[in-house]
């Protein structure tokens, strides 16, 4: 019995990481209807940036966030204005093709610069520390990851619904033409949205890199987890995305408990069931 409780709790905490994978994806889709195929590779890129920063400056990967978050945000803004804005239009295919190409380019650039050897960010004592709570041993890192995910989602929610920046995101998302005649420069608003999304990606990448080893090829899997969390939770709902991440995480840890080979499969099956029963996800946005 305790073992199952443990599996569920571990799954919930893992869900926090998946929500961080998903949040940027969800934000970008919500604001500009862009499905970013390179999202997972950008998470891995952030992990490598974290690696280089912490090695070169000799600092803890968490301290590297001070460099990697602004770096990824800046990259997001430039990427959006320099490349992705040109692909957006009535046709949904160009952004898919271009971000797919971007995914390949990032993977190859990482292979060239860092080789295919697995790397890891060393988080020090935090990696093995755990707390005894009600007979369960909870890792400090997973707990911290989950806490960060909640804070990040709450922050994004606040930006979206309580600031003029967020009002601009929602206005442009609702009606691009009318938002423009109200004085919003669409290209700039999209740039800011991508900057925010990749700032979250930076956090996700560094937490991923402390938790597990990574190599240039693992981006695709992170994209899928993020994508599944978004769809399970319901498009356009950030708290739903967190719930989606948790459901996916729990499905995986329970699957793994039944048979270690079933971890990923169980997650995909739950995703497919949700998609079949509730195509709009469990908590779709309701404001129309």
């Amino acid at each position: 019995m305790m073992e199952w409780t443990n599996a569920i709790v571990q799954g919930v905490l893992l869900g926090g990481l998946y929500a961080l994978f998903a949040a940027g994806l969800s934000l970008i889709f919500g604001v500009m209807r862009l499905v970013n195929i390179a999202h997972g590779d950008l998470i891995v890129l952030a992990a490598y940036f974290g690696l280089t920063t912490s090695v070169m400056l000799g600092v803890h990967p968490f301290a590297a966030l001070m460099v990697v978050v602004p770096l990824m945000a800046g990259l997001g803004y430039v990427l959006q204005r320099g490349l992705l804005n040109r692909t957006l239009g009535d046709d949904i295919l160009p952004p898919l093709l271009v971000t797919f190409g971007l995914s390949v380019i990032i993977q190859n650039a990482l292979l060239e610069s860092y080789s295919s050897d697995p790397q890891k960010l060393s988080g020090g004592a935090i990696e093995t520390a755990s707390l005894q709570i009600g007979g369960l041993a909870l890792g400090v890192l997973p707990l911290l990851t989950f806490g960060i995910a909640v804070v990040v989602i709450a922050l994004l929610q606040w930006i979206f619904y309580a600031t003029s920046l967020g009002r601009g995101f929602r206005a442009v998302s609702d009606n691009q033409d009318i938002a423009q005649i109200m004085g919003f420069n669409k290209a700039h608003v999209f740039g800011l949205a991508m900057a925010l999304a990749l700032a979250v990606t930076a956090i996700a990448g560094i937490l991923l890199g402390i938790r597990t080893s990574f190599d240039p090829s693992v981006g695709g899997g992170r994209l899928i987890f993020g994508f599944e969390a978004v769809i399970i939770g319901g498009l356009g709902n950030l708290w739903g995305t967190l719930a989606g991440g948790v459901i996916l995480g729990v499905a995986q840890t329970i699957g793994a408990k039944i048979d270690p080979g079933w971890q990923l499969l169980a997650g995909h099956i739950v995703f497919l069931i949700v998609l079949a029963v509730r195509p709009n996800g469990l908590f779709p946005r309701v404001d129309h």
Binding site: D174, N175, Q180, I181, M182, G183, F184, N185, D287
Partner: peptide, 22 residues
């Protein structure tokens, strides 16, 4: 369009076109 807006030209568009999520 956003530059034109800053110059002081505004429109009440056909069909109102309010922002539904605002």
């Amino acid at each position: 369009a956003d530059q034109v807006a800053h110059r002081g030209i505004a429109m009440v568009p056909e069909g109102r076109q309010l922002f539904p999520s605002l």
